[in-house]
């Protein structure tokens, strides 16, 4: 029974994976992040990033260390599940960052080399659609899905259980609670036909940080920060799409034992290419870099990212087995 190709179903599953993209890196989620999928669908991502800059990419507060240079290799893996809640599309996910970071860090005027490795702070994510199509509870809903104008409510919460060594300033775990509240918006421009899809997506969010009371024996506080991500995406073919990405970040001034740092205001831009390898597997490649980073206190960061996302749904997999494709 192949009235529709399985790729249609799986394409709908791929967006299950938003939580797995590197929210830490440039604190920006990739385009097509909040497209909805068939309820009951699951996905597992593997995301690998190579990052350099003057801030710890594992810390979304983006505290800039002037004159520092960090290099990090970070990967993220996790699991996400799409489900209906009050007839709205909802998503629950967990993502675990892991990797290593090294760099020159200046602490109290003294330059030292530090490195860290291990598991970072797992992040829980919950997203629910408020305006837009109802939850996709069956295949006909998937077939009829078009985002149109959709608005979600999103909440992230990082659990402070990652690797942390209070004797050094460079860590993978952050030793504090943090998270964000956001409202992802997707605006469909034109037809929703594979090969011709165009979207404008914006994601305003506010990051909130708890205190790290053991930051080299001191207390690190960080003010809330505002972040605005934007993506203009377009299909090139039915399988290949691209995006122009932009990020604006403001706020997040930190203080250590009452000694305040500076508040940052940064802009980053990037490009993303996405390709659907087969019915289950999606590949994304992206590069992002800050642009207003000439001053010593400006955030400097650039990121190469490759992601592989495997999505599946029991119904679709069963249909494939019956049709002899598996």
């Amino acid at each position: 029974m192949k009235f529709v190709t399985f790729s249609w179903f799986i394409f709908a599953l791929i967006p299950v994976t938003p939580a797995f993209f590197p929210s830490q890196a440039l604190a920006q989620l990739p385009a097509r992040f909040y497209l909805k999928s068939l309820s009951g669908g699951s996905a597992v991502p593997l995301i690998v990033e190579s990052i350099s800059g003057n801030t710890n990419p594992f810390d979304p507060a983006h505290n800039v260390t002037a004159g520092a240079n960090f290099d990090a290799t970070m990967s993220l893996a996790g699991y996400a599940l799409a489900f209906p809640l009050f007839d709205r599309a909802a998503l629950a996910a967990i993502i675990v960052p892991m990797g290593r970071i090294s760099g020159e860090v200046t602490v109290a005027g003294k330059s030292v080399s530090q490195s860290a490795k291990g598991f970072g702070d797992p992040m829980l994510e919950f997203d629910i659609n408020l305006i837009g199509p109802p939850a996709q509870k069956n295949i006909p809903d998937v077939l009829r899905y078009e985002p149109g104008f959709s608005l979600d409510l999103l909440a992230d919460l990082a659990l402070p259980i990652g690797e942390y060594d209070s004797s050094q300033s460079l860590n993978i775990g952050q030793n504090r609670w943090y998270g964000r509240v956001a409202m992802p918006v997707i605006w469909q421009l034109g037809p929703w036909v594979p090969g011709r899809r165009t979207t404008l997506e914006i994601l305003p969010s506010v990051w909130l940080f708890g205190d790290n009371t053991d930051y080299g024996g001191k207390t690190l506080k960080t003010d809330p920060s505002f972040q605005l991500d934007a993506h203009l995406t377009r299909d090139f073919t039915e399988q290949l799409w691209g995006a122009i990405d932009g990020t604006y970040y403001k706020g997040g001034k930190s203080s250590v034992d009452g000694v305040s740092g500076t508040s940052s205001s940064n802009i980053g831009v990037g490009l993303t290419l996405g390709y659907q390898i087969n019915d289950n597997l999606n590949l994304t490649f992206g590069y992002k870099s800050t642009v207003n980073d000439s001053a010593p206190d400006d955030l400097k960061m650039d990121v190469f990212m490759v992601s592989l996302v495997y999505g599946w749904h029991p119904l679709v997999e069963g249909m494939k087995r019956l049709s002899g494709e598996k």
Partner: peptide, 11 residues
């Protein structure tokens, strides 16, 4: 017929 079949043919 499965719902998907009815949906596609119905469309």
């Amino acid at each position: 017929l499965a719902p998907a079949s009815r949906a596609i043919l119905g469309k």
